[in-house]
């Protein structure tokens, strides 16, 4: 079964466990280095974001992740019981065309995620943020695919 399910208590040390699980999953299904890189990046940014900002006042922070591989795509469902937050509409856009001196430091994570994904959708389901995504794992990819 080309599916991976991970349940993490939401704290920073669990990122390492997430990486290890992804690497084992990638090896098992002969994912390319580049496919693993993209999967790592998208999940690292979203999970790090959720852990850093989303769980103030939440008694039992949890993150659930499900990945299904199908015809060159990873279909990912990421759920967390943090504060309601839609990263695709609420995260500020980075100022990509600004010269070095004025370029703001930060704000790139969600921009990476959006650029890598072909499809993404957010919904609030009771106490949970639910993000569903379609990530093409093939080589190449078009950095201009996502237009602001």
């Amino acid at each position: 079964m080309t599916q991976l399910t991970i349940r993490l208590p939401a704290n920073g040390t669990e990122i390492a466990r997430l990486q290890a699980s992804l690497e084992a999953f990638a090896a098992e299904h002969s994912l390319s280095q580049e496919g693993l890189f993209k999967l790592n990046l998208v999940l690292d940014e979203l999970v790090t974001n959720a852990i850093s900002y989303g769980f103030n006042g939440i008694a039992r922070p949890q993150i659930h992740l499900q990945i299904t591989l199908d015809q060159g795509y990873a279909h990912v469902c990421l759920r967390d019981n943090g504060q309601p937050f839609n990263p695709f509409s609420e995260a500020p856009e980075p100022d990509l065309d600004t010269p070095l001196e004025q370029r703001r430091i930060g704000g790139l994570g969600i921009h990476f995620v959006r650029s890598m994904l072909e499809t993404f959708h957010y919904q609030r389901d009771g106490d949970w943020n639910v993000i569903t995504m379609g990530l093409p794992l093939g080589p190449g990819g078009d950095p201009t695919h996502y237009t602001r």
Binding site: N40, L41, D44, E45, G106, L108, G109, H111, F112
Partner: peptide
């Protein structure tokens, strides 16, 4: 082998 936005900044 890998870099995220935290590294890039």
């Amino acid at each position: 082998e890998y870099i995220s936005s935290a590294g890039l900044r």
